[in-house]
Amino acid sequence: MLGWVLFAIVVGYGVARVAVGHPRPDRRFARLARGEAAFLAAAAEANFPPGGDIMASGFDAGIPAYVDRLLEVLRPRTRLQMRMLFFLVEHATLFFPAPGRGGFRRFSSLRPEQRVAVLEAWERSRFWQRRFVFASLRAILTLGYFAHTPVLRQLGLAPLAIESPVCEADLLYPRIGALPESIPYTRDDLSEPSDGTPLALDGPLDPRYAEGAP
């Protein structure tokens, strides 16, 4: 009997450390669980701290919201793989602690300097599998960081506005999901093809990347 009680306590403690106590996110996500959002916010801030050569921090970039959008468009198997990656890094410190006091916690519950130390350990590991996990996580965070339009604007890398000429194919293909009746063009709308004039780099930005875009 005592054995069962002890076992239940251990299991309960384990579940609590893995699944309970994440802060409530400031918005609702379509795919991300509360714990995943907390992990991503913590990892984003450790990977892209405030200040430095690019103004925006990982927190400013709203990386959890971006990852949520990404998960929405991925197929179930890929989605699962990505979530397993988050789970792995979030909980690895329950088994391999971060340096300093209180290192046996979930990644998102560690102090900022401990999170940085954990990332460093993943990146520098002599086991390529650990480096691979880190590189995959960093890749996802970096994609989210660059999706924050002020980052690309500060670097001068935001896509420019380009008006697409209307070509024969535009009379054939509707937008994805729509019926051919919705094609807005007729033969009269066909325009001159591109004449190869180089893009002017000081031209206006694509509206999705312009100042004030969401």
């Binding site: 701290p49 050569d53 460093e120 990146e123 590189a135 970096t142 994609l143 660059f146 690309l152």
Partner: peptide, 17 residues
Amino acid sequence: PAVLAVRLPGYGESLKR
């Protein structure tokens, strides 16, 4: 740029630089 940047090493300040 996001796709190219995923290849860059580092994290934190050095990655931003």
